[in-house]
Write a protein that binds this DNA or RNA. Structure first.
Ligand SMILES: [Zn+2]
Ligand SMILES: [Zn+2]
Ligand SMILES: [Zn+2]
Ligand SMILES: [Zn+2]
Lengths: 157, 157
DNA sequence: CTTGACTTGTGATATTATCACATATACGCC
DNA sequence: GGCGTATATGTGATAATATCACAAGTCAAG
């Protein structure tokens, strides 16, 4: 997993590349990446940060898709369900997954200044969490790990 | 930190004990644990699970306190701010802290069956998360770590 | 007692999320 | 290619969660 998020990178490439992988993944798994769903993923990728469902909806509506909340929520739910996007509970928002297909258990680093969201590798984190849980007899099925703070760019400003 | 949550325990004692420590803490830190705030903490302790703000509000209103959302939200915010309660973002809910005063960085284990919430020790988890973040140049200020799964009681049923 | 900070009550409103049901589209099968 | 079924979408309504703004009350220091 590449920690690209906070480094300068060719963003248009990052969009295209992730989108390409997402489409390949969809075909491979017989997922129906319909126009709305695909467009929502594109919108998230373009924004490159977490977006609320209503922000996404506004974009969709402006482009001729439905303008009622379920339109956005259903597409976002689909993307999250299939690992193409992530839900950031702390922000009541969603963000495109930068590593679709790769089995990954992300932790999210949320900059409180610029609202950027990065996926950090959380394999170690999850192992530690699993150990803590196991000690209590608890079986973890899903988890969300989110951190708020300052990204390197905002720290130096 | 005692992992009491999922074990059978004298719940009335647990309530009283935590409440007692909370009051001591409040006095020590010159916090104003007013009637509403104290009552909210009691309500959370009695429930011994995560409660939504509106559930708390309903209880408060029934007891003669204000019946508008800010009444509950303000008290809950105060408790969270001062480490007497925690916010569970995954549930849009709040739960009393079982370890007030003790510096602790909890992870929450949420049972999807019985909705109980336990605080697990997350020192190791947080260390791992900090390392991941530091590798990206990100400075963590606050974080929330929540896991959804099955508690030992519900697993055997 | 007066002042100023903090707290509470209350009405209104904003934001986030889900439900219900009709219509339309895609897919598997013949 | 038709047919029936599952899936997806559009749409209106509503639920659930959270915040704002301002008036009134409380408390403690000086
Ligand atoms: Zn991801
Ligand atoms: Zn930043
Ligand atoms: Zn705690
Ligand atoms: Zn349980």
């Amino acid at each position: 997993m590449e920690p690209l998020a906070f480094h300068h990178h060719d963003h248009s490439h990052c969009e295209g590349d992730v989108m390409h992988r997402a489409e390949a993944l969809a075909k491979e798994q017989r997922l129906r990446l319909t126009p709305v769903r695909k467009r929502v993923l594109e919108i998230l990728l373009e924004a490159h940060k977490a977006m609320g469902a209503y922000d996404v909806l506004q974009r969709l509506a402006a482009e001729g898709f439905g303008n009622q909340p379920p339109v956005a929520y259903r597409a976002l739910e689909f993307l999250v369900e299939h690992g193409l996007a992530h839900r950031i509970r702390r922000l009541n928002a969603f963000t495109a997954c930068m590593h679709p297909g790769e089995a990954h258990s992300p932790a999210f680093l949320i900059c409180r200044q610029c609202d950027s969201v990065a996926e950090a590798d959380a394999a170690g984190v999850r192992a530690a969490l699993g150990a803590s849980a196991e000690a209590l007899g608890f079986t973890i099925e899903r988890s969300n790990i989110e951190a708020l703070g300052l990204c390197p760019a905002c720290k130096t400003e």
